[in-house]
């Protein structure tokens, strides 16, 4: 590897490490893992430097590498498959109603005042972590980072109605998770 690349690599760290780490940490919630993902992103970036034709900015290009690595991580993590749970009844009589034991109690507004507590943040991350891997990126983009719906749809290659369906299912699960995890201790 030549001299210019070495210089680039060092300035890359100064310039992009914080941004990349920030992006990774709210998606994997693990310091060491996020750090490794950032380092791996730089390594992949350097290895494939020849493929980088300057069509996008270095920043965009590094982010696209990191995003792929995070998705790979989520997929690996999910290999221990849990059966999809439905929060709504499917029997004829009570079709579409909330399943017994998972009915919203309306208690979540109590937690807002407790946001500074680290345990609550951990609970929120835990609940995001429990979502199916294909929803996670969409949920973090939309609910945590509040990106425009149009951008989220473009980034994840889904339609607006796909987004509504995914956010609905995810929110129902997140609500239930947080009620159990935080309020029913």
């Amino acid at each position: 590897m030549n001299e210019t690349v070495k210089i680039d690599a060092s300035t890359w760290v100064d310039e992009y490490a914080d941004m990349l780490f920030n992006y990774a940490i709210i998606r994997v919630n693990d310091h060491e893992l996020a750090k490794d993902l950032v380092q791996d992103t730089f390594i992949s970036g350097l290895k494939s430097l020849a493929n980088f034709e300057g069509k996008s900015t270095v920043k965009t290009w590094l982010f696209s590498i990191l995003k792929r690595k995070i998705i790979d991580h989520w997929r690996k993590q999910e290999s221990r498959k849990t059966k999809a749970f439905s929060f709504f009844n499917s029997e004829r009589m009570s079709k579409g109603g909330f399943v017994e034991g998972h009915q919203p109690q309306g208690k979540l507004p109590e937690i807002e005042a407790q946001m500074e507590k680290n345990e609550l943040r951990e609970a929120l991350f835990y609940c995001i972590g429990a979502l199916p891997s294909k929803w996670k990126g969409i949920v973090v983009d939309k609910l945590v980072e509040e990106k425009e719906s149009e951008d989220v749809c473009n980034d994840h290659d889904i339609t607006a109605s796909n987004l509504w369906v995914i956010i609905h299912r995810a929110k129902v699960q997140l609500r239930d998770c947080l009620e159990n995890k935080w309020l029913n201790l």
């Binding site: 490490a17 914080d18 780490f21 920030n22 940490i25 709210i26 919630n29 310091h31 996020a34 750090k35 950032v38 919203p104 109690q105 309306g106 208690k107 979540l108 507004p109 937690i111 807002e112 946001m115 609550l120 943040r121 929120l124 991350f125 995001i128 609910l143 945590v144 980072e145 509040e146 929110k171 997140l174 609500r175 947080l178 009620e179």
Partner: peptide
Amino acid sequence: DSLTLNKVFKLLAGENKVDEL
């Protein structure tokens, strides 16, 4: 409940830095 989720999740991002290198 759902409105609360909207509020608390967005607090995880931005200035409220979770962690840094």
